[in-house]
């Protein structure tokens, strides 16, 4: 065996890369052959010397600095995805002019994405194509021309029935297509789509945009319920924060009040709890007072404790006419 080969064998042995069998065989050779032993002794000495340099131990302060910077950059990263809407808003302003037109255009975009994602249609090929079923309440939006067009992609298809005699066939198709809809933000159908987006897993930025848009015109109880759903279930604190902002003006409603109180009591994010306390601080319900009293003593966030204390103090002054 050449010297290089022997050296490689030695190094593999030193790095624990040999199998058990090869290791035993190597050790036997080591006892037998002087030249191998010489190489081994030299490399072992080098190995030990190099091992004086070990893996870097990082100080806690350097790690903490790095983590703080990372937190800041993650926030920036999240904000940049949130402010996409602002950036595109600037562009839209140039294109469409007034804010109401921008809102309508954004609604259209969101609607298009959702429709593209969710539309499931069943087609009966007879003499004409007919849309039988849509998963949302937006019948009639898809034109017959759209079916079979190059813009529509078939994600899945099932043959429901085929009658060989009559040659009639019924297909179920999951179609993905992009559809635009224009309308006022107060339009019930548009609001329904935005509310559905709020409860979907389309991504936090879509859900945030949906809350933003819904906040402008909370037209019915379904929207309130969708916002409450987001407040209770959304993983993203930004979405929950926006939902609290949107629901704040409706805190007299018992369901809204309950949701806000639960948020104040249990939400893990201090920012969301702060928004909840701001929404509830002027509410004079005894239930609210009770939670505020708990929060002024026990919340881990100093600002929340102060705000609770202030609200409790205001509440008692207003109620009794004197400070307790």
């Amino acid at each position: 065996m050449s010297k290089d080969k022997l050296k490689e064998e030695v190094l593999l042995y030193l790095y624990g890369e040999l199998s058990e069998e090869d290791k035993l065989s190597f050790e036997e050779d080591l006892a037998k052959y002087d030249n191998l032993r010489k190489i081994y002794e030299a490399e072992k000495k080098n190995h030990e010397f190099f091992s004086l340099s070990t893996e870097k131990e990082i100080s806690d302060s350097l790690l903490q600095d790095s983590r703080s910077e990372l937190r800041r950059r993650l926030k920036e990263e999240n904000n940049s995805s949130l402010t996409d809407s602002s950036a595109s808003g600037g562009l839209l302003h140039l294109l469409f002019g007034s804010p109401s037109k921008i809102v309508a255009a954004l609604s259209m975009l969101t609607f298009g994405i959702l429709l593209g994602k969710f539309v499931s249609i069943q087609i009966d090929f007879d003499n004409s194509i007919e849309v039988h079923q849509l998963t949302s309440s937006i019948e009639g939006i898809i034109s017959n021309e759209l079916l079979g067009s190059a813009d529509m992609e078939i994600a899945d298809m099932k043959i429901i029935a085929y009658d060989a005699e009559s040659e009639e066939i019924t297909l179920s198709i999951d179609a993905v297509t992009s559809v635009a809809i224009r309308g006022n933000i107060s339009n019930h159908k548009i609001q329904t789509i935005l509310a559905a987006a709020l409860q979907s897993d389309l991504g936090p930025s879509i859900r945030l945009k949906s809350v933003d848009l819904l906040q402008m015109n909370i037209g019915n109880i379904e929207i309130v319920n969708a916002l409450i759903y987001a407040l209770k279930n959304d993983d993203n604190p930004g979405v929950r924060l926006k939902a609290v902002e949107a629901l704040g003006p409706y805190s007299d409603n018992s369901d809204v009040k309950e949701a806000l109180l639960n948020t104040l009591k249990f939400d893990q994010n201090a920012g969301v709890r702060i928004q909840a306390i701001l929404a509830l601080k002027d509410n004079k319900d005894p239930k609210v007072l009770e939670v505020l009293k708990q929060k002024m003593e026990s919340d881990e966030n100093e600002y929340i404790r102060d705000q609770s204390r202030e609200s409790v103090s205001d509440w008692t002054i207003n109620k009794t006419g004197r400070e307790i």
């Binding site: 790690l63 790095s66 983590r67 990372l70 937190r71 993650l74 926030k75 990263e77 999240n78 995805s81 897993d201 991504g203 936090p204 930025s205 993983d235 993203n236 604190p237 930004g238 994010n269």
Partner: peptide
């Protein structure tokens, strides 16, 4: 899903 706090917790054992 974009929860950066969860990400921080996730990497805290490895960073």
């Amino acid at each position: 899903k974009g929860d950066s706090f969860a990400f921080e917790q996730l990497i805290s054992s490895y960073d």
